[in-house]
């Protein structure tokens, strides 16, 4: 599966906002923030088949 670019011109602004969301958090807090983000994004997507594909895709990129 190919993950096409949907962020377009906002890619840099999104990435920057994501880094800002982590600003000042320690690693445990950042880890928790990421977990919350995954759950919130999953609810936004709201499609189990799509979510399962995304989970598999992310897992395939695990390098370790």
């Amino acid at each position: 599966m190919i993950l096409d670019d949907k962020l377009g011109r906002d890619a840099d602004a999104f990435y920057n906002a994501l880094m800002d969301a982590h600003e000042g958090l320690d690693e445990t807090e950042s880890h928790a923030l990421n977990a919350r983000l995954v759950l919130i994004f999953a609810n936004e997507i709201g499609d189990l088949d799509r979510l399962k594909t995304l989970l598999t895709t992310a897992r395939q990129n695990t390098t370790s």
């Binding site: 190919i2 993950l3 670019d5 949907k6 962020l7 890619a11 840099d12 990435y15 895709t57």
Partner: peptide
């Protein structure tokens, strides 16, 4: 991710 996915290349 950029190796396989166009969206990540843009990031």
């Amino acid at each position: 991710l950029a190796a396989d996915h166009p969206f990540a290349r843009k990031l």
